[in-house]
Amino acid sequence: MSPVPEIAVRAVSKSYSAGRPEEVRALRGVSVVLPPGDVVSVEGPSGCGKTTLLNLLGLLDVPSQGQVLWDGRNVAVRSERERARLRLTGVGFIFQRFYLLPTMTARENVELPMRALGRPAGERRARADRLLADVGLSPRAEAFPHELSGGEEQRVAVARALANAPGLLLADEPTGELDRANTDQILDLLLRVQAESGSTLLLVTHNPRVAARARRHLRMEDGRIVGDGPEA
């Protein structure tokens, strides 16, 4: 497993202006530290900047101002190539809409990050099969995403996120398109994985039931963190 870094953002702002008549300030001077092994929920109304914060923490985007620190190093200023390498080895993403590649089977989706790292085919396949077994999808390994239910798709996405044993798991509304039973199943899975691996887990959600499973709660409003503590 990748070493679990301490992740932090310091005085981070993010503005969007492309194609809009007025600049939209998605984040306004946000600072937060995520110690290794933390389980954090980010809550708040739509448009408050939750996903933008997640994107910055996961190096999908760069801040307009401020720093994104991994073990104290500002990784936001690194090249896209370096940030891609960090994403590949250090971050596991789980998206609301799963974002499985429709042209690949469940196993191939799980193998994809390992293939990008150049892992041998046998090793890839063995680990993908193990991860699919962990999420209870061994019988569906050869299925394509359109052949899977929403819950199954998200379980494949979780397995994919764990493929390279990342130190940071980022889940953006991971249960947003799932029913209650599937929501509980996915959350149980994520928390079990986090407990086993010791990775940092950050859940973006506006669902109080999901947020309640976290140990730490960040509350956001209007691009700012307005609450940070153990209470939901």
Binding site: L60, E80, R81, A84, R85, L86, R87, L88, T89, V91, F93, Y99, L100, L101, L112, P113, A116, R160
Partner: peptide, 11 residues
């Protein structure tokens, strides 16, 4: 999605 997962642009 591939870029988000960290696949190199070269690939």
């Amino acid at each position: 999605i591939r870029r988000a997962l960290g696949l190199p642009g070269r690939q």
